[in-house]
Design a protein around this nucleic acid. Structure first.
Lengths: 165, 165
DNA sequence: CGCTTCTTTCACAAATTTGTGAAGTTAAGG
DNA sequence: CCTTAACTTCACAAATTTGTGAAAGAAGCG
């Protein structure tokens, strides 16, 4: 089990990583096929794969690839690009994928906040329940601004350590 | 639809909040019954409810309550306490529930990190794929320490604005 | 245009998840 | 101890989700 040297990639090793990382994503709530596709892209040297390549490596149908990619694109974890002069599409992981994913997370929090705000007014801001909801709401608003600042710090940190991949 | 004054709680209003907030949690990946139970607790004045109360308000079986509560307790979003001298159990939302939930989130990230570390060594730290995994790993490690600091800031912020409920 | 190559959509079978009633377990209070 | 109230576990039916093959839909290329 020594480190691969140079050009060769051990499909076994790749597959092992793909499946174990995907399993963790699934456990955290991601759909299985999306998780596997994402892990495969993440562990590819170029950071891009075609639909066919994904289907072959993961042993899944074109339909499954299509569904997985649609979801991943929707949450901005993968982008699609057309190979010039070809009907073949390439799917790519962003270097700032996590930034995108977190930004997307904010949209979800916004909807939570909306529901909470409604709850505060309808239950009454001065009732114990209303106060609890208000505090919860405040927490999310706090988190939102903190996350923004945090991502900016990451951008800086990353540039220092990894250059601008 | 004016603000409720004093003692009365409008079950319709409570239920509306419970269902709409729960729906958002479900959309973010939480199981339906757990989401509903959590929302019900969150919007109760005392912050606690018994199994029977939950079953009645949400129109679900004792078995469903049991399952939902088991999950919520596991992820530290709810705690169980025995009413002294009774076989009745009370379920309670913590005031620092979100702190707990996020701490729990860290456990998940740790497992992601483990999978990534293995990937880096097995694919080779100097391969393009290995470098991408390493950067991803660095991001999670960064997030972890930032989250810790953020929660400490929230603790302070909260105390200033809400006292130590 | 029409052929060819990819991708997406659709209907369906298989697998999984969900919530229930009923039986089982635990513990308080006689 | 025995009764009984409360919670949990279990087996199952219903509902939902998942992934596929097949058909339909785009888009390059001649």
């Amino acid at each position: 089990m020594t480190e691969p040297s140079g050009a060769e990639r051990d499909p076994k090793a790749v597959s092992k990583f793909v499946e174990s990382f995907a399993a963790q994503l699934v456990e955290a709530g991601m759909q299985r096929m999306s998780a596997r596709v994402f892990a495969a892209l993440l562990s590819s040297d170029s950071g891009t794969m075609t639909s066919v390549e994904l289907g072959e490596q993961l042993q899944i149908s074109p339909a499954a690839v299509s569904g997985a990619v649609r979801y991943l694109a929707q949450v901005h974890m993968v982008s699609r690009e057309r190979e010039p002069g070809s009907r073949r599409e390439r799917y790519r992981v962003h270097s700032n994928q996590w930034y995108e994913a977190l930004t997307n997370r904010e949209a979800i929090m916004k909807r939570w906040e909306d529901a909470l705000r409604e709850g505060v007014t309808s239950l009454g801001a001065e009732t114990p329940a209303g106060r609890r909801l208000a505090e919860t709401l405040a927490f999310f608003e706090f988190m939102e601004s903190e996350l923004r600042a945090m991502m900016e710090r990451w951008r800086v940190h990353r540039e220092r350590h990894f250059g601008d991949g």
